[in-house]
Design a protein around this nucleic acid. Structure first.
Lengths: 185, 185
DNA sequence: ACCTGAACACCGTTCAAGT
DNA sequence: ACCTGAACACCGTTCAAGT
């Protein structure tokens, strides 16, 4: 006689994301997820092997969301304009959802093939734009690394507020992107 | 009748750094530090207000170390060569001490004036080199942000091994730095 | 002044028992 | 098949008691 499911994998992931959004990665505890779902802590283990698996599932959702946001936020006529709008979109996503963003790079899970695939998917829009921009094939990987490293570094330092030295962050961000993409005329 | 001190603030910080080096930030527990120092967990609170204070003290040590390493590792005749060697030094420090590096950006402590001061100190060598390189004063803050954001982003993605797409990371790093510093003739 | 054991409220996780 | 309570080994932290 099976006991009826009070929740589902999908609902648990949604709850997990809500907890992260509200209180950061540390707030994503097995007990808190269970409580929100109306079950007891141990029951979580019927849906996920452990807390890390829950974290991983949430990370994959965020990476998919980021990809969609990047695609939707990229506009402009020139390749340069499109890449700049994509960079701005990346930054705004991270600033609007700092907890979700930090989840991606919290690296609780390492060396996971599914997560690696999700990372590549999230990076896809950038590759496509660089290709459309006519960047030489052997230059694409390098330039994408320059840009993603800068974007990740800038927004994570901004979220954490390392930039306490004043100045105009909007302007600095734009000038930085312009510097990095200078070769695109 | 005072009970004799079995340890000191300095020893506890050294132990804390050793634990981070060995097992990451999560391995820095109050009990583990206490055990290494030959005292019981609760006694830690006679030396530090809480675990965060211990973390903060360790972070400050690492930031000081980073500054010293950057100063020692910067060489070359031209401004461009000096900045490139500083960038390479930064990367090598992070790769050699990934756990210590991640401690700096783990951001367990936020909005702390002492920590902010230590961050500024660690960033000082870069400002000095940019100034020596003759970069216009109103451009220094922007360019330093471009470079530090890139450096932090690159090494943290490298540590975590997001770069699973092959290619030559050494070359990509150097080309990226060259791109960012292009304006230095 | 510093160290201690006992205690508290929390973790993640396992497991036998329920339905 | 899923949920439960009890249990375990861990956290960080407080506090009264020791010296």
């Amino acid at each position: 006689v099976p006991s009826p499911a009070k929740t589902s994998r999908e609902e648990l992931i949604a709850i997990a994301l809500g907890l992260v959004e509200a209180g950061g990665v540390a707030a994503l505890t097995v007990s808190a997820v269970a409580q929100s779902a109306g079950i007891r802590g141990p029951s979580i283990y019927k849906h996920f092997t452990d807390r890390m698996a829950l974290l991983k599932a949430a990370e994959i959702v965020v990476l998919g969301e980021l990809e969609a946001v990047l695609r939707a936020g990229t506009s402009g006529r020139t390749p340069s304009a499109r890449l700049k709008s994509m960079a701005a979109t990346y930054r705004h996503y991270a600033k609007r959802h700092p907890r979700r963003y930090e989840l991606i790079y919290s690296r609780n899970v390492t060396d996971d093939p599914e997560l690696a695939a999700a990372c590549r998917t999230a990076a896809q829009p950038l590759f496509e734009e660089l290709r459309k921009a006519g960047v030489a094939e052997r230059r694409i990987l390098t330039l994408s690394r320059t840009l993603t490293a800068f974007l990740h570094g800038f927004v994570s330092m901004e979220i954490v507020d390392v930039f306490r030295l004043g100045g105009d962050l909007e302007r600095d961000f734009e000038e930085s992107v312009t510097t990095i993409l200078r070769e695109l005329q």
